[in-house]
Simulated assay, not measured.
Amino acid sequence: MNTYPTITIDLILDRHTVKDVLRAILDAILFHRLFGTIKPITREVLGVTMPGVSDPEMEQLVEDKVDLFWKGIEGGMSKRGQIVVTFSEKRPKKSWFQVYVGEEDVPWEQWIINAEMQQPRDRDRQQFDTALSNTLTKAIHTMLTHTSSDRGRTAVPLITNAATISPFPIRVSVKVGGVEIG
């Protein structure tokens, strides 16, 4: 069992909103968990203003993972998938005899975005968009609540390198139908 916080966000998306919503959610997570000097941006998705980070490397990471998710959903039989964002710290790795043998990534927080694709009928579009908008608002509230809570603050390890936008390794994995892709 992992001892680090795991935060789950459940989304029901459609073909028209999947990329925008996933980009906005990933951007918002990074906004709340990057500790270097960032240039903030906002995204407007279904009437909800979402925070983000203006950084070419992070923007490319988000774009690549959203595209990978989209291709996995479009090309596969499963219409459910996950994007998992794991924040880690580098720690010295020791062997059995307490001999230093390099470094290992030790997770300190994980965000799981569960996404399911549905296609609403035209007459249900307004209700679907309203429900998704409410889900986005709830997701932002979850991010704010967690990152400002005692548990969310104490999960962050000591920052020893402030030279980059993220002093910690970030791993973003995409799973479709329970199988990691990419």
Rank of each mutant, 00 (worst) to 15 (best):
Q119D: 15
I29A: 08
T164G: 13
P92V: 04
V66K: 11
D129W: 02
M1C: 11
A28E: 09
E44T: 14
D14A: 06
I165W: 04
G47T: 11
G81M: 04
G81I: 00
F69C: 01
G177K: 05
M77C: 04
S88H: 05
P107I: 06
I25H: 00
R23V: 12
D14Y: 05
F35K: 13
F128D: 12
A163D: 15
T17V: 11
K90G: 07
K93I: 09
P169W: 01
I9D: 07
Q82E: 14
P157D: 05
W111P: 11
A115E: 01
V53K: 08
M50N: 13
H16F: 07
S149K: 13
E74L: 03
R125Y: 09
T86D: 02
P56S: 05
V53A: 08
D105A: 11
S149Y: 09
D14T: 05
G52L: 03
T49P: 12
I170N: 14
E74D: 07
T42I: 11
P169I: 00
S95W: 00
I112H: 00
T130W: 00
L158Q: 15
I25R: 08
T3M: 06
T17F: 06
T135I: 03
K93W: 10
T42L: 03
K94I: 07
F35I: 05
T42R: 12
M143F: 12
P120I: 02
S88K: 13
I38L: 13
P167R: 10
A24W: 03
E103R: 08
G178C: 00
V101Q: 00
L13Q: 03
T154K: 10
E74I: 01
R125N: 04
E109I: 06
I38E: 10
L132Y: 04
D150Y: 00
D64S: 10
P107V: 05
G102W: 01
T147E: 08
I113P: 08
W111L: 06
S95K: 02
P5F: 00
P120G: 00
P56E: 04
H141M: 14
M117E: 09
L132V: 06
Y100Q: 10
T42C: 04
I73S: 00
L22T: 10
Q110E: 06
I7P: 11
P56Q: 08
D55G: 07
R153W: 00
V85T: 04
I9Y: 09
W111H: 12
P107L: 05
L136H: 12
W96K: 14
D129G: 03
F69K: 03
T6L: 10
Y100G: 07
I112A: 02
Y4K: 08
F35S: 11
G177S: 02
V174H: 05
E57Q: 13
R80M: 06
D10Q: 10
T145P: 06
I113W: 02
R123Q: 13
Q60K: 15
E180N: 09
E103S: 11
W108R: 07
G81W: 01
V62R: 05
D105V: 01
R153V: 02
L11M: 11
T164V: 10
L34V: 08
S88R: 09
E104N: 13
T49Y: 00
F97I: 08
Q119G: 06
Q60V: 07
M143W: 12
L68E: 06
Q98P: 02
V18T: 07
L22C: 08
